[in-house]
Nucleic acid binder design. Structure first.
Length: 582
RNA sequence: CGGGGAGUAGCUCAGCUUGGCUAGAGCACCUGCUUUGGGAGCAGGGGGUCGCAGGUUCGAAUCCUGUCUCCCCGACCA
């Protein structure tokens, strides 16, 4: 590829809406352009990177025995209603009505359609296991797209779906994908950690996330120092806190006037206490009948909605409307408390942290008042038919698991694998005949990789002041030949020769034959991040030499013109060597 | 959806408070000359319904109203 007429698109200035390095560099290096909030066009260099990632993913899927298919992006709403995911996905689900009045979904993922494909094509246990995948655009109407392609409305996902006859086979299919994912990320040259994850609206019985550790990530990983445990914070368990010594003969509850003390900190200031002494009381509704749920937490703890969902058997609760809170507590928002409230609701979850308290403060269920000397067990029940003491909070600094300190870091989720079991196949009647001619429900798994996120994560992990430093496996080109003096005929001729020879050797090489000053071309080369640069210049050529520079190294080397191609070949091989798995 | 900020050339922004000459700069683009190893210099040039719609006014980028878009923060702490 010659750069003379190439739509390179490198720019010096960054649009002011790009915040994180990968987003800025993708724009500066001519990889992407924004079309609207959360939607991007890929320019020639950008789509080359996407294709390289896709090729790696495709190769690993094929090696793992998965078969590629292609599903529609526009899917009938009825299918989503059948599984109830039209509701579960909420407003993130993009949809439109066509001219016939039919409702259509813009596929955010494809369990439904793939289950139907599986159900139609698989009829016998003899066909199993089967794993089908596609690489296709997905659409999610994110409430707030940000960070460039890391959270965009449109993105490219590889989604695979396995079909098995029983749990043992499913476990094996799951493991095969899990291993394939490790190979994909290693080959793409991105560092990753695997963490236990919550299944979220996917449902199912088990899940792992593949996460690139990185400060700009939106996910929080919780792990132990010995790496025996790692989980997404949505899932991460914590040891219950030690039970406080019971106070002998605790004083009776006292009313405390705390006007306009909505936030916990303010109430604490009035009562001269700390959030850890407070009992926070949150009211939720859940399920089709809008049942009420009260959650009690220590004031310094964060509720974990995913844990609530698990305890409710997969139903995601929603925070109660102000109206309901006022009706239940007879008080303005901010003054809810457990005393006298728990028998008015359908269910109560009490976090271990609250159950362990000896005495504390809480809302009074009376506007502008809190109460002190609240003793769990004395002033409100901690056991009963509808009361459950459980882990319902986020892990936080200082928490332990199995006695080991929990540590935290941020990450970008680039892939996730789920054991779905029969969640979709049951609802969509995806069945097969077993050895005895009996109908059985197919067991499924699903496996996603965010192609664009691999691209952005790779940049987040590999850049410097001058631009991107691509791993060679996903770089837009492996090698760039450039001329420092494009008007010099001997220089051009030598560069041209090296370029052609590299092409003949199947090196993915580009030739910057633009009539630009050397500085401009060097800056562009660094910005775009091509791993190896060959520079032909008048000065060195007079000594019969050309320059070879590896992007991530600070020094270049000079070699004889005739050795250039071989040296480049060796460098390319060297860089690839690092990314070979097994 | 709530709070904050911003929409003026392809990009980054000034001008707006206090309305008034032909709406500006840098980068990018085109032409010419010079230059040619780390984003060159000089000269000339093209490019704008000042987000959109109303309104006030002799006169609006500037003031008022509405509206759209974009960005940031939040949207579970009762």
């Amino acid at each position: 590829m010659r750069f003379d007429k190439y739509v390179l698109g490198t720019v010096k200035e960054v649009p002011n809406d790009a915040e994180i390095p990968s987003h800025q560099l993708m724009i500066r290096a001519g990889m992407i352009r924004k079309v609207a909030s959360g939607t991007y066009s890929y320019l020639p260099l950008g789509i080359r990177v996407i294709h390289k990632i896709i090729n790696i993913v495709r190769e690993e899927m094929d090696v793992a025995g998965a078969q590629e298919v292609l599903l529609p992006i526009v899917q009938p709403m009825e299918l989503w209603q059948t599984t109830g995911r039209d509701q579960d996905y909420g407003q993130t689900l993009g949809h439109f009505t066509d001219r016939h009045g039919r409702e259509n979904v813009l596929s955010p993922t494809a369990e439904e359609v793939m289950t139907v494909v599986g159900a139609n094509e698989i009829s016998s246990y003899k066909q199993l296991p089967v794993n089908l995948y596609q690489i296709n655009t997905k659409y999610r109407d994110e409430f707030r797209p940000r960070f460039g392609v890391l959270r965009s409305r449109e993105f490219i996902m590889k989604d695979a779906y396995s079909f098995d006859a029983n749990e043992v086979m499913l476990e094996k299919s799951y493991r095969t994908m899990y291993d394939a994912y490790c190979r994909v990320f290693e080959r793409c040259g991105v560092e990753y950690v695997i963490v236990e994850a919550e299944a979220g609206e996917m449902g199912g019985s088990g899940s792992h996330q593949f996460t690139v550790p990185c400060e700009t990530g939106e996910d929080i990983i919780v792990y132990t120092a010995d790496h025996s445990y790692a989980a997404n914070i949505e899932k991460a368990a914590v040891d219950p806190l030690p039970k406080a010594e019971p106070i002998t003969d605790p004083a009776a509850i006292i009313d405390m006037h705390t006007p306009d003390a909505g936030p916990i900190e303010q109430a604490c200031a009035y009562m001269k206490t700390t959030p850890s002494e407070m009992i926070k009381c949150m009211i939720y509704v859940y399920g089709p009948e809008n049942k009420t749920l009260v959650c009690l937490l220590r004031g310094d703890h964060e509720l974990n909605p995913e844990k609530l969902t698990q305890l409710l058997g997969g139903v995601a609760p929603e925070l109660a409307e102000e109206e309901l809170v006022v009706k239940l507590t007879n008080a303005a928002i901010g003054y809810a408390g457990p005393v006298g409230l728990l028998d008015k609701v359908d269910r109560v979850f009490i976090d271990h942290g609250v159950a362990a308290m000896a005495i504390g403060y809480a809302g009074a269920n009376k506007t502008d008042y809190h109460i002190g000397n609240v003793v769990p067990g004395r002033d409100f029940p901690v056991s009963g038919d509808n009361i459950l003491v459980a882990d319902i909070r986020n892990a936080q600094e200082g928490d332990t698991l199995d006695g080991k300190e929990l540590l935290f870091k941020r990450g970008i989720e680039v892939g996730q694998v789920f054991k779905l079991g029969d969640k979709y196949s049951k609802k969509l009647n995806a069945e097969f005949l077993d050895e005895n001619g009996k109908r059985q429900t197919l067991l499924m798994g699903c496996y996603g990789i965010g192609i664009n996120r691999i691209m952005a994560s790779a940049i987040e992990l590999n850049y410097d002041d001058n631009g991107i430093v691509w791993p060679i496996s996903i770089a837009p080109f492996e090698v760039l030949v450039t001329t420092a003096n494009p008007n010099d005929e001997q220089v051009s001729a030598a560069a041209e020769k090296i370029y052609n020879e590299l092409l003949e050797n199947d090196i993915d090489v580009a030739y910057d034959d633009r009539n630009q000053r050397a500085g401009v071309k060097f800056k562009d080369a660094d910005l775009v991040g091509i791993p190896i640069r060959v520079t032909v210049g008048k000065k060195t050529l007079e000594n019969g030499q050309v320059e070879i520079k590896v992007r991530r190294e600070s020094e270049s080397i000079s070699v004889a013109v005739d050795d250039a191609v071989n040296t480049v070949f060796d460098k390319v091989t060297e860089l690839w060597q690092e990314l070979i798995v097994e």
